[in-house]
Amino acid sequence: MTAPARIRGWCPSLFRPMESGDGWLARIRPERGRLPSALLRKVADAALRHGNGILEITNRGNLQVRGLRPESIAPFTTTMEEAGAAVGEGSRILISPLLGADPSLAPDLLALADEIDRALPESLSAKFGVLLDGGGALPLSGIVLDLVIRWTGADWAVNGKAVARDAIATHIRERATGLARVSERAGHPPKLGRHAGFLLLAPAFGQMRAEALLTLADLAETHGDGALRPTPWKSIALAGVAWDQAPTVLQAAEKRGFITDRNDGRLSLITCAGAPACARGEIATHDAASALAASRRAGDGLLHLSGCVKGCAHPGAAPVTLVGRAGQIDLVRHGKAADTPAFRGLSLAEIPATMQSLPA
């Protein structure tokens, strides 16, 4: 195992965990978007034995294990390797979550993903990401990475330009480091709940306990196709659930703390781990977000709550961004976490009235 790194500006992985406020964190990349229930049980057990039992869905559809200790990193990594969790480690591709479960996806999607992985230069930054959107029932609309490959329904586009299917790998091999990043409008996350062929639910603010993950693994095995599929919207898809079984599955997931109601106020908030989980966090973001969510609905304008000025959970601008600063909160209008606040030093109790006073 490579030694744990303390370098900023890179992505942690299974083999290179990163230090955070509650210990070290490691990420498990699904193999082509899919995490089998048998693997998830081993991940949940390892998170309890070697970490603090908290897991997260990242905005690249990875599963993140928190709270590892220096002495538990090596046994955790070994356990995960033996369980088969390292299979997806070498890929940079964020692929359609319903691969293998949605017949309406672009043809030959799995083979194309393999070709793209082989075509990418090894010299690319560890943060370099590829989006491979095969359309279908759960398209990756509104998600943008360094390299964006989308099925348009009749052909393929690479960073917005049409490219023949057989020429995509060569196109990438020759131009990957020089392609202009595509500019797209932000899309809306797909609605939670029951869909034809799959269910979509979300851990509150992207975070769950290992025991809750075990419940989902059981539900996927007994009612679905035996796997969970993390999405870049920090939600989880369960494929293969019969239409008449969906209410039973959603109710069981809701009892474990997952959001299944598309109108839940927590869905209008984006937040990071915050204090004490993150060493940079200056407020307890999850406690604050839960309090604020009580008076909000999913359709309200996006509210970004950041534990510090880094704004990791939402690097872009938001209508309102709340930023933790020494236990208090700064409010930024139509900007990023690092932008100049319109209000400084607010308490959590002052936030609702302050937001109501803002001009439309």
Rank of each mutant, 00 (worst) to 15 (best):
K310P: 01
L216D: 02
L145Y: 12
H304S: 03
T285N: 09
G345P: 01
E82M: 14
P70N: 14
E221I: 01
L348N: 11
E82D: 14
I28V: 15
R34Y: 02
I172T: 09
P70A: 13
P359D: 02
G9F: 12
P12S: 12
P190E: 13
G327P: 03
W10M: 14
D244A: 10
V43S: 06
A196D: 14
R92L: 11
T170G: 14
N52W: 04
S91E: 09
T285I: 05
V87M: 04
V144S: 14
L140K: 11
P276G: 03
D22G: 12
C278T: 01
S306Y: 01
P107Q: 15
G226K: 05
R16E: 15
A113K: 05
A326D: 14
L305S: 04
D146Y: 08
A3W: 03
C308F: 00
R296L: 13
A353E: 15
A252I: 00
G142K: 10
A164G: 01
A289I: 08
K127F: 09
T177F: 01
F128I: 03
D244Y: 09
P247L: 06
G134R: 10
L331V: 14
A212G: 03
H286E: 11
I329K: 02
L302N: 04
T340A: 15
R66K: 11
V65S: 09
E254M: 00
R229I: 06
R173Y: 02
L109G: 08
L219W: 03
A212Y: 00
I54F: 12
G240H: 09
R6P: 00
F198Y: 15
I28E: 08
G224M: 07
E254N: 04
P203T: 06
I57H: 06
P319Y: 07
A204L: 05
G197L: 00
E174P: 01
E184P: 02
G160P: 08
I93A: 05
D218W: 04
R60P: 12
L305T: 05
G134T: 04
R266I: 06
